[in-house]
């Protein structure tokens, strides 16, 4: 396989607060390739959004990266470690919104209500290019057309509140692509949208990815969206990466007890009507009360007395590009469920 465009190695992001340290990301490692979609999935508090915000260096205070590398391969072949750049320095500002585009869940709060969408697009375009204002406006209209906004030449002068949720998310995507990024990070891009609008936006992201060979990091809690969009998947739980692999392996041969349990507990339109769901006992612990050892052990039906309570297991390769961090696969004599 070609060199990855983005490589995250053993990333640790902490939030030191009055009551202790929240280890929001506690050892994430993955690779992103050109033209591929990497899905990062997990429930609240798993660290998926914090991973994205670490890469973009937009962590809220007092969060900071305390360890690891975020290696971005640039157009000229050189490699830069984003974790080492000053978060609001010029280099990082050029990369954020330049080489890496971003799309968030809430287009309403990410778009300005005081500027027309055209002016926001023109600003984005001119920040990362030397186009004249006039040329930038023409480019803005082109971008709006590209993301499927009807009557783009008129809509360019509209304000974000005049648009529906689906159109706003399209504008967000146009903004993200304004500087021709090679990497797109989309954090819950369709969570606030209705299901038919979600289908439109997912189809749009897929089309643009193919046309532009984008590398996409898609962050979501929705296993259905992951199954639909991702080539590779990282499953996280309480800041820890518990399993990663190709999408088919994750859904059809999951190895970590959390991945298995999560997949079984998803409601599905394919189920029998009124079928009871499989459940995971207990609830997600509060970040301050993170269990020792493997953070999933108190809820894990397959936990081993001893190792699971004591240490977080090392990552074991269990298939092609498929790895999991679970004591079941490193402890001798442990019975691995089929």
């Amino acid at each position: 396989m070609a060199e990855p465009i983005l490589q995250v190695r053993d990333l640790h992001t902490h939030f030191p607060v009055d009551d202790g340290v929240v280890r929001a990301v506690d050892g994430a490692s993955f690779e992103l390739h050109v033209g591929k979609t990497l899905g990062i999935v997990g429930e609240s508090g798993c660290g998926k959004s914090m991973t994205a915000r670490s890469i973009l260096r937009i962590l809220d205070r007092p969060g900071r990266i305390v360890g690891g590398e975020i290696l971005l391969r640039r157009q000229d072949g050189s490699v830069v470690d984003l974790a080492k750049l000053p978060a609001d320095g010029q280099a990082m500002r050029a990369i954020r919104g330049g080489e890496i585009g971003l799309v968030f869940q809430e287009p309403m709060s990410s778009l300005s209500a005081f500027h027309t969408i055209g002016n926001q697009l023109i600003e984005g375009i001119r920040l990362h290019s030397d186009l004249s204002r006039r040329a930038a406006r023409a480019r803005a209209i082109e971008l709006l057309a590209m993301v499927g906004i009807p009557r783009p030449a008129q809509r360019v002068d509209a304000y974000s509140f005049e648009l529906s949720g689906g159109l706003r998310q399209r504008v967000m995507i146009a903004l993200a692509l304004a500087a021709e990024p090679r990497v797109l990070i989309a954090d819950e891009p369709t969570t606030a949208l209705d299901v038919t609008t979600q289908a439109q936006i997912l189809a749009l992201i897929r089309r643009l990815q193919q046309e532009r060979e984008l590398a996409v990091i898609l962050i979501t809690h929705d296993m259905g969206v992951i199954a639909e969009m991702a080539d590779d998947v990282v499953v996280m739980y309480l800041g820890k990466e518990v399993e990663k692999g190709p999408v088919d392996a994750i859904f059809h041969a999951p190895r970590h007890p959390y991945t298995r349990a999560l997949l079984r507990s998803i409601p599905s339109v394919l189920a029998e009507p009124r079928a009871r769901l499989a459940t995971i006992s207990g609830s997600i612990p509060h970040p301050f009360a993170r269990p020792s050892g493997c953070p999933f052990h108190p809820r894990c039906p397959e936990r081993l007395r001893g190792p699971c309570e004591a240490t977080f297991p090392p990552e074991v390769v269990i298939g092609e590009h498929h790895a999991t961090a679970c004591h079941l696969y490193t402890t001798e004599g442990a019975e691995v469920p089929a």
Partner: peptide, 24 residues
């Protein structure tokens, strides 16, 4: 169209979706 738009948690069932035009 609503049923077709629901993402199914199985990558082997990436079907052709009916994508509705426009908004509600």
């Amino acid at each position: 169209a609503l049923l077709s738009a629901v993402p199914v948690p199985d990558p082997r069932r990436r079907a052709q979706r009916i994508v509705l035009e426009g908004d509600v």
